[in-house]
């Protein structure tokens, strides 16, 4: 069975208030941190076994639902 590990992040041009809050917390803990961006991780187990088809399908899924292309970027890796 194929598994897709999907990461969705806010586009670089979009402010990430969650990331900024965590960044401030880390800085207040005196860690030498430059910046923090928060994203999402999703594991999708596929019923499709053909790798090429799975890849095409995952792009479609990511584009349609898992990410909002207006504000987010995505990438994924197929496993298995």
């Amino acid at each position: 069975m194929l598994k897709a590990n999907v990461t969705v992040t806010l586009k670089k041009s979009i402010l990430d208030p969650q990331g900024s809050a965590v960044e401030k917390a880390l800085k207040s803990m005196k860690y030498p941190v430059e910046s923090v961006r928060i994203g999402k991780f999703m594991e999708v187990t596929l019923a499709e076994t053909d790798k090429a088809k799975a890849e095409e399908m995952m792009h479609e899924i990511c584009h349609k639902l898992l990410s909002n292309p207006v504000i987010e970027d995505y990438f994924f890796e197929l496993e298995g």
Binding site: L10, I14, L15, P17, Q18, A21, N68, V70, I71
Partner: peptide
């Protein structure tokens, strides 16, 4: 409406969290 593309843009987490 923004998610389905009838209106442009998107609504994000409030700036002040």
């Amino acid at each position: 409406l923004t998610e389905c593309g009838l209106l442009p843009g998107a609504l994000l987490r409030n700036a002040g969290m």
